[in-house]
Structure formats: C-alpha cells, structure tokens
Design a protein around this nucleic acid. Structure first.
Length: 578
RNA sequence: GGCCCCGUAGUUCAGUUGGUUAGAACGCUAGCCUGUCACGCUAGAGGCCGACGGUUCGAGUCCGUUCGGGGUCGCCA
C-alpha cells in the first residue's frame, strides 16, 4: 500500500462507504465550526470533504496533508451535488501535515484567472493549482497523446530533429546560441524543422511526423507566443496536395470531435481557392461560422451615376433581417467603418412591402433596383451594405465589415468548429514598397504547372501548391507540395530575384540533397497551441501553455533572459559591449 | 520600434471639483461557533496611492519624465 494514499481525491463514491482510506492533497478550504471542521482536500483528480474533530491538529489552507479515516455516507441534507465525491466524506482519525504554507499566498487559488498576469506568472506553480488553469494543461497532454496515436495509426514515423541547428537565411529572426568551440560562430534554434523533414524524405522515410518545438524571435500576439511554440509537423513522400489534405482532415476532425462537444465540419473540408476567399470573405482566414458572403458589385455600379462608387471596386454584403435593427445598430456599423478607415458605409434596406430604402436608392433606376435584389437574393427586411475602396484595400475592408456584421447581428454559431482549406495561393506577389516580385508564402513550394509555368506565365498569375488550414477564422497551419527539383527551384528563385548561387548558398544542404534522387513530397504543420486555444475556448495563448513567457518574452518565474557570469561569456567567446 | 489603455492593502477594485486620519470585498491574525461546502459572528493587523520631478497654501487626483504590465500595428519565408 502506498504510504501517502489509497485513493485520489476524486475517487471515492458510495461503494467505498465503510472502508478505511488514506488521502493526500492540498487543503483548499477549511470551514471550522468549533467542535467540527470541514476540509476540502484537493489533488489533480478532484476534491473530497474531510471531517475533523477537536482532537485533530491544525491545518492551514493550501498546506499538504495526509488524512486517514473512514469513508461515511453524508446525510441527505448535506450531500454536495457540485462535486463527484459529494455523496461521501472521510472522517479523519489521523492528519499528518506533509508540508506547511509558511508564506502568505499571493492570491486566491480558485480565483487566480482574474489576477494580474505578471503576478500569476511569477507564481505559476500556484496558479496551476487552480483546476480551471490545470485542466487546460491536462487537456493538452490528452490532445498530444491523441495526435501521436493518430499519426502512428496513419503510418507516420516520429523523428526528432535537432534543436541546435543552423541559422536560416529567410523568415523570422532566429534565436542564436554562441558556440564555445568555434569562436565567433553561432547555432540557431529552429524556426521549424522544415529542412530536416525534407531531408528525411530524400533519405526515404515515407511518412514523418513530430510534435515539434519551433523558435522565433518575434513579438507576441494574443494568439502567438513570443519565442517558442509547438507544431504537429508532418511530411509525406510520393504525395500531392490531396494526400496531405486528407491526412489533415482525418487528424483535425478527429481531434476536434474527440475533445469537444461542438459540431465539427465533416470531411471533406471545403477547399476554397485563395482568390475566391479574398473576394467572398475578404480574408484568407475566413470564419465560416459567419454565413454572410461578400459580392462583387463593381460591374453593377459601373453604369450608376454615384460619385463615391465611380471607377473603384465595390463590394456588397447582404445581411438578412438587418433592416429591423434599431438606428443605433446602423450608427455603430458606421462608426466601425470610420474606425477602420472607410469614408462611409452606404446601405440599402428592403422594407416590408418590398420597396428599397436608403441614401443610395435614388441613384438606382427601377431596373437596377430589381437587378440588385436579384443579384444579392435580398429578401424583405434585409439590408445590403456597400464597401467601395481602392483595389488594394477593398477586400480587407469588406472582410472586416463582414466580421463586424456577424458579431453585431449575432450570426456566429459559437457551438461549431468550421474547418476549411485555402488552396491555390499565388506563388508570387509584388512588394508594395519596393515593387519587387517576392514569394508570397514559402520559397519551397512547387509552382502549379512546374517549370513550364515558371518559364511561360506572368509570375503574378502562377499559383503554388500551397495551402492553409483555417478553423473559425484562425489559421491553424500552412503547408505545401514541396519543390524537389533543383532546376525548378533555380528558376523559381530567379524570378524572385535570386541567382542560382544565392539559392545554393542559402539552402546548401537541401539543394545538394535534391541532386541525389528526391521523391515528390508534401506536408503541413498545424499549430498545436492554436488547436489547444480553440479546444479550451481560450482567447489567450498563455492559458494553454504550462509555463508561458509574458508578452515581452520574459520568463518571470525563472527570470529568463538573465545576466550570466563573466566566465560563461568568455567561454562563449562573447565580450560585453563597453 | 510606433500608437492606445492600465499601475491605490496580499488579491480584485472604489476614491466626487485638488481639501480632515485613503475606503470596500475577499484573504490574513485572534476569539466564538458540532453539519458546513464562497459557512457564520466579533475584533484586529495590513498602504511611500509604481518611481522621480513640477504646478499649488494643499496632489492618490492636474502636468512632465521614467519604470512596469496589457493590447494593437510593424514583424511572424
């Protein structure tokens, strides 16, 4: 028998009545009634009420105690239906204090989520005692276990790749680690195992995966850790886009349905071409819970004599029932439009009798009015909002109006996970500032049409075998069919302004390896932290990480980054700046 | 790095137009209480109002600087 416990604090039920048991845990709360006292004993698994009598020694809140005693049925009027052990209680014969609380608690454990974040992080070990905080971390363990099992079931091999590796020339800022043995040289922590997993494909590993730590020295966001985060990184040989998407469907549908009661998009998820997504949703991260669709009305307004819509792209969003909304709703929408930089927000409502109403109606002939209703399937009490702006801005603005309408009109179904793939990303785009042609997403992607497309098509019209997974408006992952052919790589980089030597210099290992027989391959890397946030219903990424850094990339608990000893600097061949 | 918001008791927060000794709740300490489960009751301790400087007879309150925290944009192949 274990010296500390026979059961956990979440285990006892009516069937244990009469047994003598031993429990250990933290004294979450103590209710002292003079002759009798009640202690809520807590561990990871639950809470059991302990009954103490006067001869028992003193216990203070949050100290660790071991209690031995008989399990008894609670009187009917003292049953606690809020906890699973609420039918019973343990009448303590002996109480041993294992570890006292010797310092004032910085906050109430059960209320820790409402405490200032830096105080929580400095005492994260106490914050994590709160079941509401701890449960997310337990869930994370179950999710990673599920993902691992699923990937293995699908024939993937888990392979660890280096943490100390080479700095990568593209992408985010690297975290650098000085070399002791090689003066003036540095390792870098990997931004992703990208190169390694592609090399594994060349080595003949057929299906690779890893729950991979990734490091990027970029500033934090609410949904983005500073420093480090995890991806379910995977790559498949002899596979194309559809093969990868099918794996993603299986795994993501599996994980969302296994750990949530919400509705999950059934496979196959919708494949939405990038261009269509930009037009219909105004973003490449559409929240498909929002039923509103953006329509292109540029052609419609070409012949209409309304100055603000002249010679610029116009979009329309038909919102059913919006015409019944109060004046303040329209004012809020206008205010929002002004905030995001629009000059106004035109709209036309359909009244009960089918007639149109709104400041712009008078510019439309009867025919045009009918055409508009028809084009947008406008019903009675619906309102169409117009967004007109420069070609570079109109889609994003329309997307933000669509999202705001979804919120204001409460069209978002909070009980579903809507997953989709965005496909057919353009291979290149023009950098607005420099006018140069750049890779849109990822230089490793295979262009659709291969070498021929690169040689013959306008670079801006070339699509890539590049795809994103989106869930409820947040990007879970991007991935691609990789470019495994040196001559195609060379051409692709040339178009983006690099010489062949530059490519060789930037990615020597990969470029070289591809000269020795590389299989066609494709992959993806869904972000584990994002998946966790969606499953746990958390807005802040720190709530799904056991020991998160603050938004300023500091570990307040262990105090990293920190000064190091002079000797350490010397060994690392680093001199303090004078 | 730019911009926005917030710093008052251990915690969460009030604090009027600048005006006596800066408050509440929870927590903590002591006492009372044999059926509570956010137990209850009584009493008490606990504050350089983030820091520095200024305006003023007088600053938690107004102004400036700075430090800390959060958000957002840049950035994130």
């Amino acid at each position: 028998m274990n010296q500390y416990r026979t059961h956990t604090c979440g285990a006892l039920r009516e069937e244990h009545i009469g047994q003598t048991v031993r429990l250990s845990g933290w004294a979450e709360n103590i209710r002292d009634h003079g002759g009798v006292a009640f202690v809520d004993l807590r561990d990871q698994y639950g809470i059991t009420q302990i009954v103490l009598h006067e001869e028992n020694i003193e216990v203070s809140r949050e100290s660790v105690v071991t209690v031995t005693g008989a399990v008894k049925r609670r009187d009917a009027d003292t049953v606690n239906p809020k906890i699973v052990t609420g039918m019973v209680e343990v009448h303590a014969d002996t109480v041993a204090v294992q570890s006292k609380v010797a310092r004032a608690l910085p906050f109430e454990i059960r209320d820790s989520k409402n405490v200032r974040e830096d105080v929580r992080l400095r005492h994260r070990f106490l914050d994590l005692r709160n079941p509401a905080v701890k449960d997310n971390i337990v869930l994370r363990s179950k999710v990673t276990g599920f993902l691992r099992a699923k990937m293995e079931e699908l024939g993937f091999t888990e392979i660890q790749t280096p943490i100390l590796t080479a700095s990568s020339p593209e992408g985010a800022r690297d975290y650098l680690v000085p070399s002791r043995k090689h003066r003036g040289k540095f390792y870098a922590l990997p931004q992703a195992p990208q190169i390694f997993k592609q090399l594994l494909m060349v080595s003949g590993f057929d299906r690779y995966f890893q729950i991979a730590p990734c490091f990027r020295d970029e500033d934090a966001r609410m949904d983005r850790s500073p420093g480090e985060f995890y991806q379910l990184d995977f790559e498949m040989a002899f596979a194309g886009q559809e093969d990868v998407l099918e794996v993603a469907e299986t795994v993501l549908h599996g994980v969302f349905s296994a750990f949530s009661d919400k509705r999950v998009s059934p496979a196959p998820f919708r494949r939405i071409p990038y261009a269509e997504s930009m037009l219909k949703y105004g973003t490449d991260k559409p929240d498909l819970r929002n039923p509103l669709i953006i329509e292109d009305l540029t052609e419609f307004f070409r012949g209409v004599d309304f100055a603000p819509f002249k010679n610029i792209p116009v979009r329309g969003i038909a919102a059913p029932g919006a015409a019944l909304r109060s004046k303040s709703f329209f004012e809020r929408m206008l205010e929002f439009a002004m905030e995001i930089g629009m000059k106004g927000l035109g709209y036309i409502s359909v009244l009960d009798d089918g007639s149109l109403k709104g400041p712009i109606v008078k510019f439309l002939s009867a025919d045009k009015q009918a055409e508009l209703r028809n084009k947008l399937s406008l019903k009675e009490n619906g309102t169409v909002f117009f967004i007109a702006d420069s070609p570079g801005a109109v889609d994003e603005l329309a997307g933000r109006i669509r999202a705001e309408l979804g919120r204001q009109l409460e069209l978002i179904d909070k009980d579903s996970f809507e997953l989709c793939f965005i496909v057919d990303y353009p291979m290149y785009h023009i950098n607005d500032e420099t006018g140069a042609v750049e890779f849109t997403h990822n230089p490793f992607s295979m262009p659709q049409g291969g070498l021929q497309a690169l040689e013959e098509k306008d670079p801006l019209n070339i699509l890539a075998w590049q795809y994103d997974v989106v869930c409820n408006g947040s990007e879970l992952s991007s991935g691609a069919v990789r470019n495994h052919l040196p001559e195609v790589m060379k051409k692709a980089f040339e178009i983006a302004g690099y010489t062949g030597e530059a490519l060789e210099k930037k990615f020597p290992a990969l470029y070289n390896a591809f000269h020795y027989g590389a299989p066609p391959h494709a992959g993806m890397a869904p972000g584990l932290d994002r998946i966790m946030m969606l499953l746990a219903g958390e807005e802040n990424i720190r709530e799904v990480v056991a020991f998160p850094m603050n938004s300023n990339a500091q570990d307040l608990l262990l105090e990293a980054p920190c000064e190091v000893a002079e000797r350490q600097l010397r060994e690392a061949n680093i001199r303090r700046r004078l």
